[in-house]
Design a protein around this nucleic acid. Structure first.
Lengths: 209, 209, 209, 209
DNA sequence: CATGAATGAGCCTTCATTCAT
DNA sequence: GATGAATGAAGGCTCATTCAT
């Protein structure tokens, strides 16, 4: 009677959930399609009904990982507060997302490793990176335009903050016990802002001494 | 000492060279032991005479990758120059090493991905990271002790610089055309030093405004 | 009679048309039921409503291939012309049919190959072969009875002509550019008739010389 | 001590023997590589050490099937006997070979069916066909040149004999009980020779009547 | 009647590792 | 020490068939 509900999205999610879990636990290469089938509660054949191949799961998972991160952050561009307040909010939100995603790190690094040989993976990752950098760059440009920040270019400043964010996660990976991502990101930003709020000529003077 | 020993070292190097090349080009998982055998000019059987397994090559390669990085840097600890000059030299040398190692990045990220699942790989990577952080931390401690730098702790400052270094490489990976590692590392350090040279109470005051 | 029956026939034909096309183009083994479904414009489920299995399509297709060949030829048995005129007409018609069926050759040979393993396929093919040979044999028997032809038995002569017909198609398969089926069948028949019109004792005499 | 005998040929033969047997019994498509492995007494991996793929076995088997056929027949070209004696010897030898190969017929027809989709299979079959036809054509040309035979062209006559040979095997396939290949080939040749020994103008005259 | 999502047995091929020579 | 033939477990993917709707 019921008009046969479309289970496509549900099934795809079942599969992606299972893939995310098994890839994270066992690694992309060690995970077998039959593992994903079993974990998802579907048959091996069904996996291939909804997805083309094991590889194609990568792109879909990457989109899942990154998508939620982008939301909300854009609103900071029209936020009336000062630039450093907004940048603090920015890195706070990013680091919160990062912390939430920490458990998917093994998965993510499998994909980074794959990105070196698979253009499509590389492109997907780069696309999301670019979106973040665009927002960050716009934000900083506002600071420069208003004279709240000083830098040779908005890109250079964005790279400084971006590097710091990404790098903090790497350090966490090297030594999870010593690194508190949220706290260090906050501290690191403070140091960078100190530099970014210093007028350029003063910076140069200071260096020359 | 004995000529036999030398031949053994030579053979091991032949194999590791070949492994490094093929792993980098084709990825760890896609590379077959027969590829390494062929590239090294040895037989498959010989590979197993000198190394236990494909996995065991990983640790040996990691040591090869990191080993050259460490040397010379220690001397900075007794260098008579000011802290910020020495930190500049430090990040300059590190970024030079990084640039040299850029071609091994695919290999390295394969290993990072593996590190999540293989304790021994994780430990090897962490060990080298730790050595760097130790030097960096000592360096900064000198700066704090002499009043040249200001931070809540030497570790916190070291984390800031360390994150920035690692993160710059990540950004290069995301967008190799836009990121010039040596240049951005230098710029980023300048910003951080600005913060690190600002007395703590001034920092706080500044923030409150 | 009932309209339902007609729809059923229509559907079956849709399916058999599609199967014939796809089997011929891609081969029986490479063709998937979903290909046939798609080509026929029906669903996979419907295929199984009208046919039991992929294999069951074979027999139905064989009947389709052979059916048209039989008609009209029987009339030659009561044709008032001389035997060699009628045999000429016979091989002409057969070779015309063969030429028309050339495009189904790949399909047919798939089935011949299957016939070695599937009794039902073998029987279907043999049944149609037998019908042809029966007509040919009857025709020749008339020639022998009337003294127009000479052979140890009508079967032996029929085999000579039958082999020639089948064999010409094989040669066409081996070298399609050089073999013109209709022309060579005609020439070949002429040579055979020369032999069949020669009295037996003359044949023998001739040989002994 | 012994200089490690080269078992390559032996292994290849083991595999080809097993493939020939299983392909013939079960058909190319139904035969699994593991069946061949088991039958050959080797492991599945070894099959791939000696042969690239399941498909590559086809070509090697075809060469096995045809190769022995070619030998010896060439000597007929310089045989001093009359053409019809030599043609009789020719078809006798061919039909003997055919009879010996009858048990491989299922295998051969699998390959013929495959030839429609695989150029390499088609080429291999055609190559061997061509060799036979070349010999047959040369033989007949001698007959024409010496005036022992009469035909519009040596090719036309060769096609007549070739078709007859191939066709007789087909008829045997349709009805193995009734067809005695060696006997019918001999009879059929006799009929054709009758035609080939008749001068062309006589043939035409005869037809016109 | 019709659909197409779901199933799962099955297959070709790969490749790390071993070991007789 | 060195070789390379041999192994066999394992895995991604296919596809004929079924059946709930």
């Amino acid at each position: 009677m019921s008009p046969k509900k479309d289970l496509t999205e549900e099934r795809k999610n079942q599969i992606l959930d299972a893939a995310m879990k098994t890839f994270t636990e066992d690694g992309f290469h060690k995970t077998r399609m039959s593992d994903i089938a079993e974990t998802s509660g579907l048959s091996k054949g069904s996996l291939y009904w909804y997805f083309d191949s094991k590889d194609s799961l990568i792109i879909h998972l990457l989109e899942r990982i990154f998508e939620p991160e982008i939301k909300d952050i854009q609103t900071l561009l029209t936020d009336p507060r000062s630039i450093d307040e907004r940048l603090e909010t920015y890195v706070e939100r990013i680091s919160e997302d990062m912390v939430k995603m920490l458990k998917w790190m093994p998965l993510f690094y499998d994909f980074v490793a794959l990105a070196f040989r698979q253009e499509s993976v590389k492109n997907t990752i780069s696309k999301y990176y670019q979106r973040h950098m665009d927002i960050l760059t716009s934000l900083i440009k506002q600071g420069l335009d208003r004279g709240e920040l000083h830098a040779d270019s908005e890109l250079e400043a964005a790279i400084a903050i971006g590097s710091m964010l990404e790098g903090t996660v790497i350090l966490w990976f090297y030594d999870p016990d010593k690194i508190d991502i949220k706290r260090h990101v906050k501290t690191n930003l403070k140091l960078l802002l100190q530099g970014l709020k210093t007028p350029l000529n003063y910076q140069t003077l200071d260096q020359d001494n």
